[in-house]
Write a protein that binds this DNA or RNA. Structure first.
Length: 274
DNA sequence: CCCCTATCCTGAGGGC
DNA sequence: TGCCCTCAGGATAGGG
C-alpha cells in the first residue's frame, strides 16, 4: 500500500521524465477512475498541455499543467504510476495511459480500484471539496511543532487510528503507523488522551524517522507497490513490526501481538510498547 | 461534533 | 488441479 515514502519515491522517479514534456494524447480506458472532472472531455482537455511540475501532498500526486490544470492521482491500495515505452504491452487493470511528446508513456494501473484520478484547476478542486483536508507533512521542517502533538493528545480515539487520519497527519498509513509506534515504544491501542507530552514527542520524532528510512530504501513492496519504473522497493525487509505478528520482537524477543485498530491489522510488542 | 463500522475491489493463499 | 473461502486495506458514507 503506497504511503508517503512510496508516493515520494514515485514522484522523484517520475519528475525528471515528466517535467517539460507535453501531453500528446490521453486515453482514459476506465472512465470511472476519474472522480473529479468530465470523462468525455478529459482527453481533449489534457492534449497539448505541458507538464510543469510533479509534486506530492500526503498520498496525492499532482501534475501541474501549463494551462492551469492539476492532474491529481491517488494510488489507493494497489495503484501504480509508471513510465513505459509505447511498444510495451499494457498490463491488466491499466486505467489511464498518457502519451508524451517524446514517445514515452505514463501509465496508471490499479487492480483493486481504490485509487482515483482528478482533473481541475486548483481553485475548482478546492472549491468543490474534491480533495480532503490534509494535516501537516511528516517530512517538512517544523513537523514536531505543527500542532499534531496537541491534536493527538486531545482525541479519545486509539492513537493509531488518529495517525491514520489524513487530516491529522498527511501521508501516514498502516505500515508506518505501526512502525512509528514501535520505535516510540507506545502501544497503538492507547487512547490519544492517555499520552503524556513526552510520549507524543517520541511519536512525532519516530514517524519522520521511519519514513525517511523507508524513503532511503525506495519504499515497502509487500504485494503491489512499484516505483516509477515498475521496480520493487526494499523497505519491507527492514520493518520492525508490520507483517510480523506472531514472530519475535527484534528488540526483546517477545512474541509480537496482532490485533485490529480502526479495522486495520495492527502489530505491536506487549513488552516494549507501553 | 466525534467516533466507529461497513463498503468498495481483486488477487493471494489456505484448506480440502 | 481446482474450487471456495477468507483476508488485505485507503478513504468515505452513514449510523450511533
Amino acid at each position: 500500500m503506497p504511503e508517503l515514502p512510496e508516493v515520494e519515491t514515485i514522484v522523484r522517479d517520475l519528475r525528471p521524465h515528466l517535467v517539460g514534456r507535453a501531453i500528446a494524447k490521453a486515453d482514459l480506458i476506465r472512465p470511472s477512475v476519474l472522480r473529479f472532472g468530465q470523462p468525455d472531455s478529459f482527453p481533449f482537455r489534457l492534449a497539448g498541455q505541458q507538464i510543469r511540475a510533479v509534486t506530492r501532498r500526503g498520498k496525492f500526486i499532482h501534475l501541474r499543467l501549463s494551462e492551469g490544470d492539476d492532474l491529481v492521482v491517488h494510488l489507493g491500495m494497489t495503484g501504480s504510476l509508471t513510465m513505459a515505452s509505447a511498444s510495451t504491452p499494457r498490463a491488466l487493470h491499466t486505467h489511464l495511459v498518457i502519451d508524451l511528446d517524446d514517445r514515452s508513456q505514463l501509465r496508471y494501473r490499479d487492480p483493486r480500484r481504490f485509487g482515483r484520478v482528478l482533473l481541475g484547476t486548483p481553485a475548482q478542486l478546492s472549491r468543490l471539496g474534491a480533495l480532503p483536508r490534509l494535516g501537516p507533512e511528516p517530512l517538512a521542517r517544523g513537523f514536531t511543532e505543527s500542532g499534531v502533538a496537541e491534536s493527538l493528545r486531545a482525541t479519545s480515539r486509539q492513537i493509531k487510528a488518529a495517525l491514520l487520519d489524513q487530516a491529522v497527519v498527511a501521508g501516514c498509513g498502516n505500515i508506518y503507523a505501526d512502525e512509528a509506534c514501535f520505535l516510540a515504544r507506545i502501544r497503538p491501542i492507547r487512547r490519544g488522551s492517555s499520552l503524556t507530552r513526552a510520549e507524543t514527542t517520541r511519536l512525532l520524532l519516530a514517524l519522520p524517522l521511519v519514513m525517511r528510512e523507508a524513503l532511503r530504501l525506495r519504499g515497502s513492496s509487500f504485494s503491489d507497490f512499484r516505483d516509477g519504473f515498475g521496480a520493487k522497493g526494499e523497505a519491507h525487509e527492514a520493518l520492525f513490526v508490520y507483517g510480523r505478528g506472531g514472530l519475535p520482537c527484534v528488540r526483546c524477543g517477545a512474541t509480537l501481538r496482532q490485533t485490529r485498530v480502526g479495522g486495520r491489522t495492527t502489530v505491536y510488542c506487549q513488552r516494549c510498547q507501553r
